[in-house]
Design a protein around this nucleic acid. Structure first.
Lengths: 266, 266
DNA sequence: CGGTCTGTTGAAATTGATCAATACCGGTGG
DNA sequence: CCACCGGTATTGATCAATTTCAACAGACCG
């Protein structure tokens, strides 16, 4: 298979994104990532809203675009559990015995799918990756816990702030931000289902935040005007700080070089 | 160290509970569990509300009693993420970089702690257990997702029903139930923090459920009078069905032999 | 340029929160 | 055995956040 580099394109390869992501959560020798160059995988292109069949013990790296996990209730209510962006590792194992859980693409999305055997081979070859992937699972659990925190004990305004901060932090570490500009492709409908609100209230809350000079909302991105005030108002705790050993606990958002936005838009 | 069997006590050992739990989520050869007899571990007794320090990559099996995970906000609001009961495997790795997450005992509780090295040895010795533990991690994630579903998109009444059903199903598989009687040691305050409600509203909701002839509430247990109606009203999906290969999808609560209640009460 | 998806805004309705008061229950000590 | 105590549960009245419903304005797309 030809890499982007071979055909002369400078855009980050999925391996670059994945490596960046993994290095942000674990101290990893660069050599570990050589294994990625030879790992067997298939590329899957998904259209907006297309869902991704579960594959036991298989993994996928989001190359471009976005995925989200959700569950429908009988009367159509939808709960959104989380989002995955470029560079993120998505566990493709079925979430629940039932059929109501789903993983779907948001916007046109490309996934690098690593099947069970190949994933196992990769793990055998690279114990460092195994550890990093385990840490990544802990991170996924933390994201779910944050979701519970927001939904269970925060007001709409706090929820929104906390959600945006978390999303921003993830996007920063994935190299998707541009200064305080952060891709935010979700519709307010989708955010509503992730925040446990109605789309109406999402709209109102966002515009209140705008008038409070906390954020600027654009087409498919959001700009944070006053992150510190936002962090304080919802008691946001970084999801990365300690994992990234060298850094202070109190600086949840280390500065990093920024690529151009690479979001697949719906 | 002397086992209960050696000193003539018939109560289930933590190994029995753990084995039962593991077998309910994965097809496992009984021989795999022999490794448990030689695994290095320490026993930790905890008092009500005592918290359990995080230990990276260590695990613990709940022997008796209950644990719960929570996070405090600055103003004292508390979000409860989940509960663990006898036989459950608890991941002791720190949940988040911050200090606000905590794992604590509910009632007097005994934990079998397996430190990092010993856990690693156990895994090396027993590949079957590794797979089962991975499945267990998926189950933990599903429980968190269920929590998100409840908090995000269900009414108080539905939340309560869904929560009770999930708790009941877990207790059944752990062998803690007696027919439709299920240990429920939590106070309404604690349930409130798990359900995103006030203790007042928990009280009201429970008494409405009682008058609707869905449940009976006793000292520290709850009795399900009409599980089917309850399952229907909140669209409950079993968390075990498919993992337990031999059974039908539509029977979320297979009958099992039942031990006596073994809950540690606060 | 029409159609669909998305976002905005206002008014009314409702769920669940807040506050206050009281009852209960299981211990503990006199 | 009783009195008392802290923690827990109940109940009623009021209040507020968020939902619901309805109507419309933009944006994007072929």
């Amino acid at each position: 298979m030809a890499t982007n580099a071979e055909i002369g394109i400078a855009l980050p390869d999925w391996r670059d994104r994945f490596q960046r992501k993994m290095q942000s959560i674990a101290r990893l020798d660069v050599a570990e990532f050589d294994h990625l160059n030879v790992v067997n995988h298939t590329t899957r292109s998904l259209r907006h809203h297309e869902s991704i069949a579960a594959m036991p013990r298989a993994m996928a790296v989001v190359s471009t675009g976005w995925c989200f996990r959700y569950r429908l209730l009988l009367d159509g209510r939808r709960a959104v559990f989380g989002f995955w962006m470029a560079g993120d590792l998505v566990n493709l194992s079925p979430m629940s015995p039932g059929r109501s859980h789903d993983l779907a693409a948001w916007g046109s999305t490309e996934l690098i799918v690593i099947a069970e055997v190949d994933y196992r081979n990769l793990c055998d070859a690279s114990p460092g990756l195994v550890a990093a992937i385990a840490t990544n699972e802990r991170l996924d659990a933390l994201l779910l816990a944050n979701q519970v925190l927001r939904l269970g004990r925060m007001t709409a305004y706090e929820r929104m702030a906390h959600f945006i901060l978390e999303h921003w932090e993830r996007a920063r570490f994935a190299g998707l931000t541009n200064d305080n500009d952060c891709p935010m492709p979700m519709t307010q409908d989708l955010m509503a289902d992730a925040l446990g609100l109605t789309n109406f209230h999402v709209s109102r809350t966002l515009s209140r935040m705008r008038s409070d000079k906390l954020i600027d909302v654009e087409r498919h991105s959001i700009r944070l005007i006053d992150p510190d005030r936002m962090i304080a108002l919802c008691d946001y705790e970084s999801i990365y700080a300690v994992r990234n050993q060298g850094r202070s606990d109190r600086d949840p958002f280390p500065t990093r070089s920024t690529d151009a936005h690479a979001a697949g838009s719906p």
